[in-house]
Design a protein around this nucleic acid. Structure first.
Length: 380
RNA sequence: GGGGGUGUGGCAGAGUGGUUUAAUGCACCAGACUGUAAAUCUGGCGGGCUUGCCCUUCGGUGGUUCAAAUCCAUCCGCCCCCA
């Protein structure tokens, strides 16, 4: 069985929260960690330099997108994604499994993999589990993911069961391909398996046991935060996390909102990724310690204070709400960067706060303080 | 002085007798966004409340008509051409 890159440092005395480290070739990641998403290899609207002072430790990219453009051969020739995009910290690539969900209508799933019709030019491309691994190997991120199908919600039992079982077969093939030429020592990548099974507890458990049995460097939970009620998501976590060995990282894919980070760390999650800070930033929504706001709204037109007095990001250091409100209303492209940057800072700073609370066994105290402030503006 | 045209909701601009509180776009007011086909999408945008209705709207006034933003008269404003 493969050795994982995770080291457990401390377990909370209050709940299932953990402090840990993930070792990669490009550096050590303190967990729990929030990983912002940069589908095309960059956080949309945020230059690397702007993050040099931040707590961003690792970013995501997407193998489907990079495979289509610029093409894996370009990235390979550049010397890997981190050489290509000049991000000298860890990266993780998703397998294309999420696109099996989001590109519904222009993709076909079969036993051997997913056929995509390119959203760019309509050309057809086939991602087998092995192909996804080869693509991710060429891209060269530190952590790579098995090809899976992110099942939508709601999903009937039969569909979820068949999809989950197909996912297990794919996971086996991914692992086999990953180890085929024993390239691991050369690239020092880690391959994570993904647990599926929608909201059905027996399917989730079966998936967990089988994925564990195949054995991966870390374990991701997929197919959540796709529209199911929060309680469903929490009960899935409570159901399967106790089964996963404590020496492995647990990664909740696609989550989430600030409140989700607290709730899911509390249940034992180590890694999160989400597009929310950047996408919502581009749409004018800003996270602050006093709640979320839409900076385009009238109430900020003459508000000359920073977005968040508790924030040390470049946006908050340099610009007022009134000015950002003006930039958004004027559609001046600078706001895309400034708001995305602030939101990314907010999420990773929150994660730093959460890590400290686990270290000092003040998780619930900190959580309470956060929520009291966060919901002080409105009831969200 | 003569001839022609035109005036529609914050703006632009459809509509030329009924299905019109009046298309569409912009602006404005909100909301949503969770492993990124998203700098996107959705809703609202005359007034009132008992939220289903009532009242008020297409330069002004007065008519015709069962019915007028739409037809007629007149007044006012603006534009173009000729003197």
């Amino acid at each position: 069985m493969e050795c994982g890159p995770y080291e457990l440092i401390k377990e909370s005395s209050e709940c299932k929260a953990r402090r840990g480290k993930i070792y990669t070739a490009r550096g050590i990641i303190d967990t729990p960690v929030f990983m912002p998403v940069g589908t095309q290899g960059t956080l949309k609207g945020v230059a690397n330099e702007l993050l040099s002072d931040s707590d961003v430790q690792i970013i995501l990219a997407n193998s489907y997108h990079l495979y289509l453009r610029p093409g894996t051969e370009v990235i390979k020739e550049a010397g890997g994604i981190q050489r290509f995009n000049s991000w000298n910290k860890p990266m993780l690539t998703d397998s294309g499994g999420f696109q099996a969900f989001s590109l519904k209508g222009i993709r076909k799933i079969s036993e051997n993999g997913v056929e995509f019709q390119s959203h760019i030019d309509g050309s057809k491309h086939f991602f087998s589990p092995e192909k996804s691994i080869r693509v991710q190997r060429d891209i060269g991120a530190d952590i790579i993911m098995c090809l899976d199908e992110c099942v939508s919600y709601p999903s009937d039992y039969e569909y979820a069961k068949n999809s989950m079982e197909l996912g297990l077969r794919w996971a086996g093939k991914c692992k086999e391909e990953f180890w085929r030429d024993n390239n691991f020592s050369k690239t020092r990548q880690s391959l994570f398996g993904i647990i599926q099974g929608s909201v059905y507890s027996d399917l989730r458990l079966k998936s967990t046991y089988e994925i564990l049995n195949i054995g991966f460097g870390g374990y991701a939970i997929g197919g959540l935060s796709v529209g199911e009620p929060k309680e469903e998501m929490h009960s899935v976590l409570e159901n399967i996390l106790p089964v996963i060995p404590s020496g492995k990282a647990r990664y909740l894919m696609g989550v989430g909102m600030p409140e989700d980070l607290w709730e899911c760390v509390e249940r034992g999650i180590d890694m999160f990724d989400c597009v929310i800070p950047t996408r919502n930033g581009r749409n004018g929504q800003v996270f602050t310690s006093f709640g979320k706001i839409n900076i385009r709204n009238l109430e900020f037109k003459k508000d000359f204070s920073p977005l968040d007095i508790n924030c040390r990001c470049p946006t908050c250091k340099g610009y007022s709400k009134a000015y950002l409100n003006h930039l958004v209303r004027s559609k001046e492209s600078l706001y895309l960067s400034l708001l995305s940057l602030h939101n990314v800072y907010f999420m990773v700073n929150l994660m730093t706060t959460i890590r400290k609370s686990v270290e000092t066994d003040t998780f619930f105290k900190s959580k309470k303080e956060f929520f009291e402030k966060y919901y002080s503006r409105n009831q969200n």
